[in-house]
Design a binder for these strands. Sequence first.
DNA 1: CGCCTTCTTGATGCGGTTCAAGTAAAGTGG
DNA 2: CCACTTTACTTGAACCGCATCAAGAAGGCG
Lengths: 246, 246
Amino acid sequence: MLNASCLHRPELTAALASGDRKLDNLTVPYPRTFAAGTTIVQQGAEHDYVYRLRTGWVGRVRALPDGRTQYLMVFLPGDLFAIKSVFVAAHPDAVVALSDVTVERLAQHRLRDAFDTDPEIALRCTWQIVEEERRLHNWVVSLGQGSAEERIAHLLLEFSVRIGAATGTGRALEYGIPLTQDQLGNVLGLTSVHVNRVLRRLREDGLVSIRNRVVSIHDAPALERMAEPLRDATLQARARPETAAG
Amino acid sequence: MLNASCLHRPELTAALASGDRKLDNLTVPYPRTFAAGTTIVQQGAEHDYVYRLRTGWVGRVRALPDGRTQYLMVFLPGDLFAIKSVFVAAHPDAVVALSDVTVERLAQHRLRDAFDTDPEIALRCTWQIVEEERRLHNWVVSLGQGSAEERIAHLLLEFSVRIGAATGTGRALEYGIPLTQDQLGNVLGLTSVHVNRVLRRLREDGLVSIRNRVVSIHDAPALERMAEPLRDATLQARARPETAAG
DNA sequence: CGCCTTCTTGATGCGGTTCAAGTAAAGTGG
DNA sequence: CCACTTTACTTGAACCGCATCAAGAAGGCG
């Protein structure tokens, strides 16, 4: 499991997997379930658990005082979330179940002890945060520079890759998505109306369609071409390495 | 030093400060300087150092293949940067000196060893990443939901707070800023033309002005009112705590 | 002085929002 | 099983915030 893109230094792979396995011993005995729409962690509240997502989709979302809302992260199975509980007292944003989900809970203080005594667990936790940072960087680029088309293409492809990686099969050309167009808008920084219009265009052009909460990628190369400018530069750089400067 | 907003769990304060002090023993003997505009870490390159910023401003920036660019982080004195070197092989974005800077270097592998053997150092490193994540969350909200006015007001206030915290004095109502309007645009996801126009309005309305690379906040309350919707919700929540839900 | 970067301002246009209305599908309670 | 409601999707028309294009002014710096 662990992570999709495996951008970590190769010498860490074993330690990471080992750290992940060790989390099993720290989880509260029985997994817990939340129905779609449930708030798992309240915005602004203190919280004493960290979670490992087993099934379903979870989102971190911030509500602005005037009613606007923005999603900050979408978690898929295998992700650790609310890991900030270990370090900060209050969560500045809510964590909600986007679909029905099952999670394993880890008591914050126990994980914190393990963090101190077991470097592999510390590594696993830090890795999760580093990975989230990577996603956030891409998110900022997407929101700051991407057009609506580019953002949507990029997001649907990212889910495709992450789901594919989590399930072991390669990229998923068809996958369930629990997000409504309204939620997609709040992920992408767009209105649901515009999301709808762009999706229509993509559907009519035969690139991708969403029907009955299922994404079907019909023309992956074209979709990738569309999302290309927003693609994580790490991969591009690998294709044509450059010399480092002082 | 360490961080501004002190949102960490109180029981960690001592360990964090201690971890920060321990970094002193890991730094390469002589601090290094970079001239404004220099690239410190190349986009897409591997890199074996982590840095602690002593003086000046540093930015992490991503260049898209078609020429667009987006800043992903602005580092101020006290920040650790390129800390990802410890965990990932290649940096997906460049790190550049926004002004003349002096930095302390830490060899990646030495820090990694220390990370394993000393929980306080692990905590200090993880804390830096958690803090960056906090900033990125706010950044995403800003780009996703904020108007140009809100984003600019929010950014200038954030710098004010962070500089104030780093220098020990409270919020800085006047501070030097090395960013050009063009760079501000690439931080804010706006064109320099629009940044210019909004800054003009803010100046004419007596809220804030930038002249000769110096920001002067003339009407802090009004500026805060303008940035209010984007303000980190943690503080808001503290004012009126809510009950937690299951 | 002449060049270059940054700042400034105007004119014009487009991408995305806003407002509004209508359709479709899935509950829900009687 | 059928009115009634609710939630999601869809589409149109009008508007506006910000981008784009263009050109000039104001400052460093060789």
